[in-house]
């Protein structure tokens, strides 16, 4: 499994309120949520994001509310992967559960710049910045997490195993 796309770069503590503000949580439709993704931190994000693009951030990405709407909005906006120095734990769990690939890699988070083109190999955990030629070793996904992502979420995965 691989992902490749252009990078949107953010800093520390990107919280779930800026990823998807609560004023839009009266909807749970992924397509509608996607139209407001990152609105309170980056107004242009939804106009610029292309299918396959990648979010890179510093520490504690996804802190705050447990709203699964946050990774749902990111995935529905077309983002193929989120790389960060660290993730808040509920966001981490939610992302895996809905099948949004996420990777912790402090070195990649520090070096990759906004607008770079990046390739991620989920099997090996290798992150390659194609713009600079730099390569980073992230944690490869444990097999069961890869299975959950391939199944597009925990529920499908549980169903398949039965």
């Amino acid at each position: 499994m691989k992902a490749e796309g252009r990078v949107f770069k953010y800093g520390d503590n990107v919280d779930t309120d800026v990823i998807i503000p609560a004023r839009y949580l009266n909807s749970s439709d992924p397509k509608e949520l996607a139209t407001h993704c990152m609105e309170d931190i980056d107004k242009d994000f939804v106009n610029k994001v292309q299918q396959g693009d990648i979010i890179v951030a510093d520490k504690n990405f996804g802190c705050g509310s447990s709203r699964e709407h946050a990774p749902i909005a990111i995935k529905a906006a077309g983002v193929s992967c989120v790389i960060a120095e660290t993730f808040a734990r509920i966001f981490y769990r939610n992302s895996i559960n809905i099948g949004l690939p996420i990777l912790e890699c402090p070195e990649a988070a520090a070096a990759i710049k906004d607008g770079d083109t990046v390739e991620v190999d989920f099997d090996s955990g290798v992150i390659t910045d194609k713009t600079t030629g730099q390569s980073f070793k992230g944690q490869p996904f444990p097999e069961f997490m890869q299975e959950i992502i391939k199944a597009e979420g925990l529920i499908n995965y549980i169903n398949k195993r039965k």
Binding site: S66, P71, I90, R93, N94, N97, I98, L154, I155
Partner: peptide, 20 residues
């Protein structure tokens, strides 16, 4: 996310998302 409140009575409680 504020499900952790019940630690006040000596329970293990933690916030999760909707799929969990």
């Amino acid at each position: 996310s504020h499900t952790c409140t019940y630690g006040a009575v000596g329970a293990f409680s933690t916030g999760v998302g909707s799929t969990d």
